[in-house]
């Protein structure tokens, strides 16, 4: 049974979505305009809000061991990531800390069966805003907002840097072309970052699109 909608995006999105899906108490826009046009835009340049994807953090000396018991494929090195089966991502953000973002298919985040974490593993609330900048011209947009040279970036490795003045985790993701990046940032700064990116994307004629164009295999 779907949960009632209790979670909202920090962003002001263009219009009522053409289609959406419920995701752990949030609504994920699948497209706004026309799915085909958005798919084309995603090749060229587009911005997509994925803040609805559920996220969680796990921290403490026992975090690694506990996550392993949940069959989560853990990255070995700090700042590296692995893919979850539902399209989600898990990133090792410190020696004793992981950040997990679920994919769009609604798979639950790992929680203890009895509700109690082991004494040395602490859940950390993660409510980061999450967005994707994609398309061939994404690199040009990034050059206006970030002093990091993404042409040298390693795929699937998170880069902590400053984007449009906002400290962000940037994730040049595999699965779609290299110029596609995912950004996570503190929710309180997210509107500022989003507005800056929207303004620049508009100048490059890049629209805001729904998630379907990114996750073509959405069930």
């Amino acid at each position: 049974m779907p949960l009632p909608i209790t979670r909202t995006s920090p962003f002001e999105l263009p219009s009522t979505p053409g289609a959406s899906r419920d995701l752990a108490g949030a609504s994920l826009a699948l497209w706004f305009d026309d799915p085909e046009r958005e798919r084309q835009a995603a090749q060229r340049l587009a911005l997509c809000d994925l803040s609805a994807l559920p996220k969680a953090g796990y921290k403490g000396n026992g975090a690694t061991a506990w996550l392993q018991t949940h069959q989560t494929p853990l990255p070995a090195e700090t700042f590296e990531s692995t893919r979850l089966t539902d399209g989600g991502i898990i990133v090792k953000v410190a020696a004793d800390e992981y950040f997990l973002e679920a994919g769009p298919s609604g798979v639950d985040l790992p929680v203890p069966s009895n509700g109690e974490f082991p004494p040395d593993c602490f859940p950390v609330v993660r409510e980061d805003a999450s967005l994707v900048l994609c398309g061939a011209r994404a690199a040009a947009v990034l050059l206006q907002v970030c002093g990091y040279d993404f042409s040298t970036a390693t795929l699937d490795r998170v880069i902590y840097t400053r984007v449009a003045g906002v400290d962000s985790a940037v994730f040049p993701a595999a699965g779609y072309p290299h110029t596609h990046v995912k950004l996570w940032c503190d929710r309180s700064y997210a509107v500022s970052l989003w507005n800056s990116l929207v303004e620049i994307c508009e100048e490059f004629e890049g629209p805001i699109i729904g998630a379907q164009a990114l996750f073509t295999d959405l069930p």
Binding site: T8, P10, Q144, V145, A164, R187, S188, Y189, V191, S192
Partner: peptide
């Protein structure tokens, strides 16, 4: 173009 990150609460 200047970026002026402001923090907003979720209830802004």
């Amino acid at each position: 173009r200047r970026f002026h990150p402001l923090r907003r609460t979720p209830l802004d």
